[in-house]
Amino acid sequence: MNYLVNIFEFLGISSALFLLGLYGIFVLRKNLILVLVSIELILLAVNVNFIVFSVYLDDLMGQLFALYILTVAAAESAIGLAIIVIYYRLYGVIDINTINFLKS
């Protein structure tokens, strides 16, 4: 395992990606698609994390999970995009600041 002594760099990258995704969810209020992209970014960070640990611990389970997450992320983004499209068709807008129908 000598070639992977510097795991913290990888983990730092994945954490940075994760926080960037969170930041995107919080701060981006223009476009629902950007939120979706941020969620994809978070999932990507998680994936990277899984793979890094899988290699680091020499365990195949992490890569298995990474594959699953890839699938789930694809399905999720497909459904999310579908919702956004339907929403846009109904209301003609995907500006987050105006979307508050969750309340009732």
Binding site: I25, R29, I96, I99, N100, F101, L102, K103
Partner: peptide, 11 residues
């Protein structure tokens, strides 16, 4: 608290 805005829920 439940304002209906997505970013509130996220926060």
């Amino acid at each position: 608290i439940q304002s209906g805005y997505i970013y509130h829920y996220a926060f």
